[in-house]
Computed example of a mutant assay.
Amino acid sequence: MDWNKTKTIFIVVFSILNVFLYSLYLNRHTEAQNIQVIGTTSIEDSLKMDDITFDTLPIYKKDSSHISAKTAEFTNEQVRKLENQTVGIINGTQIQSKLQTPISIKNAKGDFTFTEFLSKYVLKGEEYGLWKVDKEEREAIFFQKVNDGPIYFSPNAMLTVHFDEDGKATSYEQTMFDDFVSFNRKKDLLSPIEAIGSLFSRGYLKQGSTVKDVTFGYSILAQMSETQLFAPTWHLRVELKNGEIEDHFINAIEGKIVEFQPETLEADHE
């Protein structure tokens, strides 16, 4: 047997096979892109039929992973450094603080501003983002952030600041996670327009409504003893025809609707 000739034949055959497989891949990739474009166009057309509009959609990362974290345990050494406050630690995982002298959280125009308060009086305060200010209850609620995205409505990742009638902070409660770890491989995310389409197809978007904001964050997926697993999540803020605001949340990988307790959804960014 002529092994050189046989080897040459094998090389040629495998080269042709590689070219064929690559060509097949390109064709399927192109078809998938075309389907995606058609699907996106269909979503926009469907929205127009129901007079549903949306503001400018955010630039987003096309893939992400689940993350895990452990509930943080606070130490006396940590809270001892906090100034102008009497601090108690509840069950090792919650800070309860009463400010000795109330601190103004309003600017010269009378608007609430929390940046200085968070950085000066709250442990790792820069890790929290404002969710709502409730003027009737005189409290401001913050969610802990990871990868610049809030962890929505986790009781173990919240900061609640109480203030008086003069707009001065008087006390707060704080919980947080630490030891964040990416869990499994990165997966493709729904685009913002696909998230809107998912809401629409399930009947959550009413005629004449406007999607005012689409933001990226995380929601609890599973509890594993002391560790919690979080899923990438889209938050869609929708303004109804009558001016009312609704908040919706969608798992950004699976496309499932994420439900929270109704009372926690009465949020108003200030």
Results as ranks from 00 to 15, higher is better:
Thr175Ile: 06
Glu137Ile: 01
Gly88Asp: 12
Ile59Cys: 00
Val79Glu: 06
Ser198Leu: 02
Ser65Lys: 10
Val214Ile: 06
His162Met: 07
His66Tyr: 15
Gln78Tyr: 07
Phe10Asn: 11
Lys81Cys: 00
Asn156Phe: 10
Pro232Gln: 05
Ala222Arg: 15
Phe200Met: 02
Asp55Glu: 12
Gly243Arg: 08
Gly203Arg: 09
Phe74Thr: 07
Leu189Thr: 06
Gly197Pro: 06
Leu199Arg: 09
Trp234Phe: 03
Thr233Trp: 02
Gly197Ile: 02
Ala32Cys: 00
Ser182Arg: 14
Phe180Cys: 02
Lys212Trp: 01
Val146Met: 03
Met1Trp: 10
Ile9Met: 13
Phe183Asp: 12
Ser42Trp: 05
Glu139Leu: 10
Thr41Met: 09
Val238Ser: 03
Trp234Gln: 05
Ser191Gly: 08
Ile245Arg: 09
Thr56Phe: 03
Phe260Gly: 06
Asn156Gln: 13
Asp164Trp: 07
Thr56Val: 08
His269Phe: 12
Lys256Asn: 12
Phe153Gln: 14
His66Glu: 09
Val79Gln: 08
Glu139His: 09
Asp55Val: 00
Asp164Lys: 09
Val122Ala: 06
Thr30Trp: 11
Lys106Met: 05
Thr40Gly: 14
Lys186Ser: 10
Ser191Pro: 06
Phe143Asn: 11
Leu221Ser: 13
Arg202Tyr: 00
Val258Ser: 08
Gly92Lys: 09
Thr30Ile: 11
Asp63His: 15
